[in-house]
């Protein structure tokens, strides 16, 4: 079975990569442990981080390190999620508008690119100053980062529809609405999801970064407090790993949703043979 073998080799490659990363990390940690006075501030052993997750020691009087991380992750990730969904919806609608009207594309596209070029750290204080609310800022920044990849990918999807498919719709006299509903929107779904996969981890990163601007809680706040030694450094390490895992999971979540939305991508890739003869109708 060809497809299975390919899947197996992919899994093997991932496994080797993870193993290599762990090996390099541990080598580094061993080296750091011998040379630095406080090795956990530079590179602790992986088991130390895992241990800190299960540690029952109260860090701030009422919560363990992991409880702090989880509580703050909730705030940050919820905002990232709202911003992501908002950005995805705006991005899709914008692509639709740009495809429907050439003038919208001409006017909007350069500005979209400019917005995208401003670093988040430059944009975030402005958004915060305007909204005066860290929660709204998180949502808005996550949305801004999300909508651009979604809009550009979806627009590319609309434009990638082959001319013959449009001509077929033309010959059978489909209306513009029907062409969008039956052809263009279903065709752009894989492109739309490519945009979502790019932007999902970005929305999370952005939300964490916005946290650091103000001490109102959230992963970013805890991250900087932990780095400033206001609490145990393991909060920092746990956040690093948690956000990495959530980022990867957000990407895979998009893949899963895509497969649910497009079941044909699950169908087997094996070609069937030409039937020997016409079935005679009964």
């Amino acid at each position: 079975m060809e497809p299975n073998r390919k899947q197996d080799s992919n899994r093997l490659a991932t496994f080797v990569w993870v193993l290599a990363l762990i090996l390099i990390w541990e080598l580094g940690a061993t080296l750091v442990a011998q040379t630095k006075r406080t090795p956990e501030n530079v590179l602790p052993h992986l088991y130390q981080i895992v241990e800190s997750v299960f540690s029952t020691k109260l860090v701030n009087g009422s919560q363990t390190a992991f409880q702090i991380v989880l509580a703050n992750a909730g705030i940050t990730l919820a905002r990232a999620g709202i911003g992501f969904m908002l950005g995805a919806a705006i991005g899709f609608l914008l692509a639709l508008l740009m495809n429907l009207m050439k003038t919208v594309e001409k006017i909007a596209f350069p500005y979209l690119m400019i917005i995208q070029m401003i670093p988040i750290l430059g944009m975030a204080p402005i958004v915060l100053a305007v909204t005066k609310d860290i929660d709204k800022s998180r949502v808005i920044i996550a949305a801004i980062l999300t909508f651009y990849p979604v809009a550009t990918n979806t627009l590319a999807g609309f434009k990638a529809v082959p001319g013959e498919k449009l001509e077929l719709m033309h010959v059978i006299a489909a209306s513009k609405f029907e062409i969008y509903r039956k052809l263009l929107i279903p065709s752009c779904i894989p492109y739309f999801f490519t945009g979502l996969k790019v932007s999902a981890p970005m929305a999370i990163t952005a939300s964490i970064l916005v946290d650091t601007l103000q001490g109102g809680g959230g992963l970013g706040t805890m991250l900087s407090q932990s780095l400033k030694h206001a609490m145990t450094i393991y909060v920092f390490w746990q956040i690093v790993f948690l956000s990495a895992i959530v980022g990867i999971l957000s990407y895979h979540l998009m893949s899963v949703i895509e497969k649910l939305a497009a079941p044909h991508r699950w169908a087997r890739k094996v070609k069937l043979d030409e039937p020997a003869q016409l079935d005679e109708p009964a």
């Binding site: 044909h264 070609k271 069937l272 039937p275 016409l278 079935d279 109708p281 009964a282």
Partner: peptide, 24 residues
Amino acid sequence: TEMLELVGLYHFGKKYPHELSGGM
């Protein structure tokens, strides 16, 4: 159903296009 019988593909109705040969 009638059309698929006409072109000899009645038994392939639930397949997706990429599963079929070029002629099908």
